[in-house]
Nucleic acid binder design. Structure first.
Lengths: 152, 152
DNA sequence: CTTGACCCTGTAATCGCTACAGGCTTTAGA
DNA sequence: TCTAAAGCCTGTAGCGATTACAGGGTCAAG
């Protein structure tokens, strides 16, 4: 299978495949005499594995760790990774629920028909942050070591 | 107020303030004779406004748009921005709820005591993605124009 | 024999920061 | 008075996970 076929088959961007290869997340595919990559079943499985993990929000370095688990070793590290991602997701859900409420309130505060001078949205945004927003910001600040896992 | 004072007072990283200035999100603070920036009340309000919007998950370009709304103009664009972010958040919550369920299932599938050969986590991860994970990936793919707003 | 579709490599852009290098200024203490 | 530390300045690079683009080679169809 050539790159574009893999891309279509697995619904993955062509460049992403090359990116994974550059990080040694997949074994290097064989090359045809003209230099074109050919992906075999093993390559495809590896890419699918990454897709699966990514769809669970697991980071690429952690995916590499999971992939490199020796079959006979104990699986504590797999547990650690899953638990860590679970906690992150739980926190994100809590944060997003707060954001949702706030944005809904903002949305309600405008009838769409006035000038922005009278607009509840603009007024509210200009007002000082409420206390629980500071809490949110602090949560984000604690996230320093995990830059890829902010609320955004 | 000098940079470090603003940083402490508003609980914002020192460099972030300069970053916002570089994007013209705040008016350029006055300079002392030695070149040091001094932040006045207006500067502080602008930074607070950005913090507030950021805490709601609004992107910097959108914050700029909100900031530039003329007082007398109508506030349709403010509404559009809020509604857009609300929809994004609602979708993210749905996605994260799915991820949570999946990771919980994964977590349950391992007793922590076996080898990774027998580990339910590793086994499940290697298995092919289920259909609703593909749905998730598609949602992400549709996010192309909003790279800062992926699930991560 | 040219056009277009595909492949290759390397590198820059994205977003919202954060960090660092290399240099100036100011303040406090020895 | 000297010096060290803290704070400021600028410009630039790094993060993570892609995506895009420039500049080139290869291949099949018309």
């Amino acid at each position: 299978m050539l790159r574009s076929q893999v891309s279509t088959f697995l619904e993955i961007d062509i460049e992403t495949i090359r990116y994974y290869e550059s990080l040694n997340l997949i074994t290097k595919p064989a090359r045809l005499s003209n230099g074109y990559r050919t992906y075999n079943d093993k390559n495809l499985e590896e890419i699918k594995f990454i897709q699966h993990c990514r769809s669970l929000g697991i980071g690429l370095e952690e995916i590499k760790a999971l992939k490199n688990l020796k079959p006979a070793s104990d699986c504590t590290s797999a547990n650690v990774i899953i638990e860590k991602n679970l906690k992150l997701i739980e926190q994100k859900i809590l944060d997003l629920n707060l954001l949702q409420i706030q944005l809904e309130n903002l949305s309600k505060s405008c009838s769409t028909k006035g000038t922005s001078e009278n607009c509840g949205i603009v007024k509210s945004l200009v007002k000082e942050s409420l206390s629980f927003k500071k809490t949110l910001l602090k949560n984000k600040a604690q996230d320093h070591g995990h830059k890829n896992e902010s609320i955004q």
